[in-house]
Design a protein around this nucleic acid. Structure first.
Lengths: 335, 335
DNA sequence: TTGTAAGCGTTATCAT
DNA sequence: ATGATAACGCTTACAA
């Protein structure tokens, strides 16, 4: 391996000068710099990042925790994180947890033992062990999409889920729907309660009762969406519109409806959430709420960068713009 | 920060003993070990991985290069890689390239400057710069799905694409199709030529001509699938069956066919490749070739582990089992 | 502008 | 079984 030592010997300067020539060229005579660069070239020197990181105490790496990388909404956020990370000189360690809290902890711990400098959390769980609660308060962490459960101060990048849900509800009501169901993802997260709250508020404003039996919970998956919809259809009376808290859920729900021989939107209207790529391709194209996934990921990384580099952690919640995209999966309520 | 030094002072032993007590308990007296562990507990000591890695010269980290993380087939492979990596004590650095060769190089270089110990490549490109060609031959690298272009010796995990394509072709022919088109992903990779070759061979065996105009190329995306299918439909005569080299392509093709007012499979049969989750949920459910994505990722990581830990690189190609899954997107050829 | 040397926290070698 | 110490490659005061 070619080290700075070798370069310095070849050129006849000290390692300090080599280091400066490479990192702070202006601190060194142009001709010295030239000689160093030439030696670097001929010897094929590469800085040993391991040593550099050790010396500086920084890893220039962040961890991103995600429950399911195959969900395109999450993977787009991760793409945004990574794109921005690269710009800022950071690498991204992947933390796919498959909803396993133990794996969350493994990844979170990386920040505590200097495997990474910061953490981006896409899940709503506090990823550290109880015993690390205190120290965790000082670690640079940002959450995206969903807020971290409990009374913590981490910055949070999201959209206004309450308002988005209001828009969804108004849209459905404008089509004449009064029998509205919903299928949620995570059971008890802020996102879920915001979205449910927005829906309920609008129903209330229109004096439309909310039927608790029509509020299903599961995970953000097609499978859960299908099962929940099947359960709804098996009830004596079922809703004419179902608001799914993710597009994946909606895709599962659509499958269940078609399998039951019903039509969308003539018999049942479906709304999704996230606006993943496939929404435009499915049949019928899905009405959904667009979240700027890439931008959210980028922004999370920017804020994390600030935290890592000295800014104090403060609980800001940053809202990104969302858009209700009306496509063909919603239509007039059946008579 | 709590260091070994502090532990050793508290216990009254040397740092070497602390190190041994933690890593090689059998080299230390049980009572010494006890005291050390207790001090570790009370001081809340955590090993500094940065220092450990620097000292050992290993990062316990691998990079996985992927062109598009939002493609569920790729993200499942990455999940497999990560699951296995965690078992083996490794972390995974994400290298989403968005098809940008410069980003591939950034990620590949991480192995050269000690940011990672090895590399898993899902793309078909040789990710290193020309000037690093020689040194690259010694770096632990494994490719999955697609082989690396050129005359290299890296291990390669895949399925038998030629045979799988033969199965697809036979299936279509058994349904009476003679006008068969295809939409490929990457232009000139081994996977593409294997799949095309398998198709052509079977057609030849059945004395069915292959129409070059019906062989489209683009990327593994829905968008490309849609555009290619639109182009096919705009031809005077178009195929009655189209073999798409990925499910994403197939989803785009299906959209184009429906938009044109045609039915699947009555007017045109569609076959996909990969068997991503959504295949069962789309309308009609997609006939496709299942690739064991998670297993392929796991296996790639296992082999990479062996390379990193001393096994010599040898050009093995390991084939995983595939399955043709016949669903409803393929049917009898129209009269 | 450049050199010297300490320091980062762990592991490993060689004594004891 | 344990201690002393060197070593890993780079950065950075501090000196010259």
């Amino acid at each position: 391996m070619t080290t700075m030592r070798k370069i310095s010997q070849l050129v006849g300067v000290s390692t300090a000068t080599v280091s400066r020539a490479l990192k702070n060229p202006e601190m060194v005579l142009p001709e010295t710099r030239e000689k160093v660069l030439k030696a670097v070239e001929t010897l094929g020197y590469r800085p040993n990042i391991l040593a550099k990181n050790f010396s500086s105490g920084k890893t220039q790496t962040v961890v991103v925790i995600v429950t399911d990388l195959t969900n395109p909404f999450f993977s787009r956020i991760v793409q945004g994180v990574e794109e921005e990370a690269q710009k800022l000189g950071y690498s991204v360690l992947l933390g796919d947890t498959n909803d396993d809290i133990n794996r969350e902890r493994v990844y979170a711990e990386m920040v505590l033992n200097n495997k990474a400098d910061g953490l981006i959390q896409l899940d709503h769980l506090f990823p550290f062990e109880d015993k690390d609660k205190e120290i965790a308060k000082t670690v640079p962490m940002v959450s995206v999409c969903d807020a971290i459960d409990g009374d913590y101060e981490y910055p949070y990048i999201t959209i206004d889920n309450f308002a988005a849900s209001r828009d969804v509800a108004k849209h459905l009501i404008s089509l004449g729907h009064t029998k509205i169901g919903a299928i949620a993802g995570k059971d008890d997260s802020l996102v879920t309660s915001d979205r449910l709250g927005g829906l309920q508020r609008v129903l209330q404003e229109h004096n439309i009762p909310f039927n608790d039996d029509w509020f299903m919970r599961g995970g953000y998956t097609k499978q859960c969406g299908k099962e929940s919809m099947e359960a709804l259809l098996s009830m004596g009376e079922y809703p004419t519109a179902v608001y799914c808290f993710s597009d994946e859920i909606a895709i599962g729900a659509i499958k269940a409806i078609k399998d039951a021989g019903l039509r969308i939107p003539q018999d049942i209207s479906i709304v999704g959430f996230d606006n993943i790529d496939i929404c435009e391709y499915i049949d019928p194209p899905l009405t959904t709420v667009d979240q700027p996934a890439v931008e959210m990921g980028q922004r999370a990384m920017q804020i994390l960068y600030q935290l890592i580099n000295g800014d104090a952690i403060q609980h800001i919640t940053e809202f990104k713009p969302y858009t209700l995209l009306v496509r063909d999966s919603t239509g007039l309520a059946p008579k």
